[in-house]
């Protein structure tokens, strides 16, 4: 069952993390505590920026917030429903219909064409292959990558891969977009293009949680936090 089918008030947080702890190699000789009690509420149509030095745990935090990773302790809820009560099927529905993630290292299907990378996540939906194809082309147009639609992902440049990863994330018009360094591999012009697309996404009512060092991306965010020593501290209130 999709978590949003419950009675969910519009101003309730979409994601609520409380005292989130993430430890790697727990109990081992090289135990690494990355998150030490993080509290965060992500409200609808908000834009949250997370900054911090390399290795501070930004990617780990976003992974936990997007159900890609499980926290060691603490509570996490999506649309008011505790994550531990979400079945595997409900998590899939959440990822498919509500959440989208832009990976720092793109995570593309390298041997598939660009258009298929955009729509492969939707193959389990009812739309026909032809419909998905055209929607993918339209999405690629938004990131000016339509000319590369039939090219294999591995043949694209780093910047093009970043745009493709962005296109894949926004193709499903997600309620919340979690972006891990979405402009880190781009030249200034393309970074500007993607920033403007993020801006448009927010204007259309989307919710953004972005980990970034890029001032242009951070400037889009109304709340900015700094992750340091495993704790989240509010840096700026827009």
């Amino acid at each position: 069952m999709c978590p949003t089918s419950r009675n969910f008030a519009v101003r309730d947080p979409i994601i609520e993390a409380s005292n989130l702890v993430k430890t790697f190699n727990s109990g081992g000789p090289f135990e690494l505590r990355v998150l030490c009690g993080v509290d965060l509420k992500v409200f609808p149509n908000s834009a949250i920026g997370i900054t911090g030095s390399s290795g501070a745990g930004k990617t780990t935090l976003l992974s936990c917030l997007s159900l890609l990773d499980a926290p060691t302790s603490g509570s996490l809820s999506f649309f008011g429903q505790p994550a531990q009560f979400l079945t595997e099927g409900a998590q899939s529905v959440l990822r498919r219909e509500k959440l989208a993630f832009i990976f720092q290292d793109f995570q593309l299907f390298e041997d598939l064409p660009a258009w298929l990378n955009v729509c492969v996540g939707r193959f389990v939906e009812k739309a026909s292959l032809r419909q998905l194809h055209w929607q993918a082309i339209e999405t690629l147009e938004q990131v000016e990558l339509q000319a590369r639609a039939d090219h294999l992902a591995r043949l694209l440049s780093g910047g093009e891969k970043q745009r493709l990863a962005f296109a894949r994330a926004i193709a499903r018009a997600p309620e919340i977009l979690l972006a891990d360094e979405p402009t880190s591999n781009l030249d200034p012009d393309t970074a500007k293009l993607l920033t403007s697309r993020l801006q448009r996404y927010l204007e259309q009512g989307g919710t953004l949680v972005a980990a970034s060092h890029d001032p242009a991306v951070i400037s889009l965010c109304r709340e900015v936090y700094e992750l340091s020593e495993g704790r989240l501290r509010k840096a700026t209130q827009a």
């Binding site: 990822r95 492969v120 389990v124």
Partner: peptide
């Protein structure tokens, strides 16, 4: 394994 995980990250269920 990476492909399987990526499909899951994109919203595929284990059944799919």
């Amino acid at each position: 394994r990476r492909e399987v995980a990526l499909l899951k990250a994109l919203g595929w269920s284990a059944r799919h």
